[in-house]
Design a protein around this nucleic acid. Structure first.
Length: 103
DNA sequence: CGAATGACCAAGC
DNA sequence: GGCTTGGCCATTC
């Protein structure tokens, strides 16, 4: 089963200017408990996947290390028109206003 | 092939 | 009400 593939496909369906949560994506693939795998998948995502539109359930950007600084994600989201707040070195998004609603 | 991994989450102190 | 704990399950090594 290409779980990752499903993750990528759904990620691509997220509207510009919207964001989704890991748990939300997992639920759409009918494996709600595999939220961690969504993160796992997005870490190894191809270049054509809008991984920056996927954040954790609290609206916080949880990236910290590696070659994907959370600043980059925040910047990308801002470019798409998503309002990003910075608080104590972490970036947050108002989920109520910007969460993506699947069809 | 068995064991570790992980950009999570909900429940429990 | 903030912090810790344990479970989760496909991928990776």
């Amino acid at each position: 089963m290409d779980f990752f593939k499903e993750v990528y496909r759904l990620a691509k369906q997220i509207s510009r200017g919207k964001v989704a949560t890991y748990g939300q994506i997992a639920g759409l693939i009918s494996t709600p408990r595999a939220a961690r795998l969504v993160g796992f998948a997005l870490r190894r995502s191809p270049n054509d996947v809008p991984w920056q539109r996927v954040i954790n359930s609290k609206g916080m950007i949880s990236i910290e290390n590696l070659h994907c600084p959370k600043e980059l994600q925040a910047k990308l989201l801002k470019n798409e028109g998503v309002e990003v707040f910075k608080r104590d070195g972490n970036y947050f998004v108002n989920l109520k206003a910007y969460q993506w609603q699947p069809k």
